[in-house]
């Protein structure tokens, strides 16, 4: 690294470096798991604090949880449809909450204060492994949703409205997880990089607008991922009305 006239501990850039752990002969990215455990811990703490005493007249955190629940229910009901949304609400909701808290955690928590031997902590969703894992789960989910609801009639979807669509629909099955994972990964990583580069160049004030934009993008990306996941599942369980 080029020596700088001044040194700032918060403004180093490390991209593509990972904290490797060995698990049974396989390598995993330790920093992703560390931050994801923090995210999951925060989520569970919020949920446990809010649902310890559920009342008919909500108070405190229960209001927030009910708002989130209603928001996610509306999202999945709108995309999946009245009949099947109940089965998929937990999955869609978990995707949304996990991605949202990951993104915001990556943007808001001063991870640099925790020093790792290699790599750095950040949003778990800024790692391609996480986003591909989530996207593949969505693929599995919509296949499972379609097959369990319609059996082999699910494959009619590939030739509707006309068999000419068959190759496109098959390609879609590959592009869906690809676009889902790369969209999320790219947005979150780009946001972290922009903020990091700006903080590296001008450590004061200038990164703030980019940080706010980052918060906005993070929320939007969580919403987009959850909405698209719900839409794919909805597409798979959709019954054609002849």
């Amino acid at each position: 690294m080029v020596p700088l006239p001044f040194f700032l501990p918060f403004a180093e850039l490390e991209v593509g470096q990972h904290l490797y752990w060995q698990v049974g002969g396989y390598q995993i990215h330790g920093q992703v798991f560390l931050s994801s455990w923090l995210v999951i811990g925060a989520l569970l703490a919020l949920v446990v604090a809010g649902t310890r005493k559920l009342e008919r007249d909500p108070r405190g955190v229960q209001n927030l949880l009910e708002f989130i629940w209603g928001y996610l229910r509306d999202l999945s009901r709108e995309q999946i449809g009245e009949k099947a949304y109940r089965d998929w609400l937990p999955f869609i909701g978990t995707l949304f909450l996990f991605i949202f808290v990951s993104n915001w955690g990556g943007a808001l928590v001063p991870w640099k204060l925790i020093h790792l031997p290699s790599g750095e902590l950040g949003a778990p969703t800024a790692d391609i492994n996480t986003t591909i894992a989530l996207a593949l789960l969505v693929s599995l989910a919509y296949f499972y949703a379609g097959l369990s609801r319609k059996g082999f009639r699910y494959f009619e979807y590939y030739v509707e409205p006309t068999p000419i669509m068959l190759p496109f629909k098959i390609v879609e099955d590959f592009t869906k997880p690809l676009s889902l994972s790369f969209r999320l990964f790219g947005n979150i990583l780009a946001d972290e990089l922009v903020v990091a580069v700006l903080a590296f160049l001008v450590p004061l004030i200038v990164p703030l607008p980019a940080m706010f934009l980052g918060l906005f993008t993070s929320a939007i990306q969580a919403l987009i991922f959850a909405t698209l996941a719900a839409y794919y599942i909805g597409e798979a369980v959709h019954e054609e009305h002849h």
Partner: peptide, 24 residues
Amino acid sequence: DLDATLPLMAVQVVILTFILNALF
């Protein structure tokens, strides 16, 4: 850099889904 992080993260998210379903 794709490695075992991917399946483990998927398993973790599935487990989180079940936990959140039960708790939330």
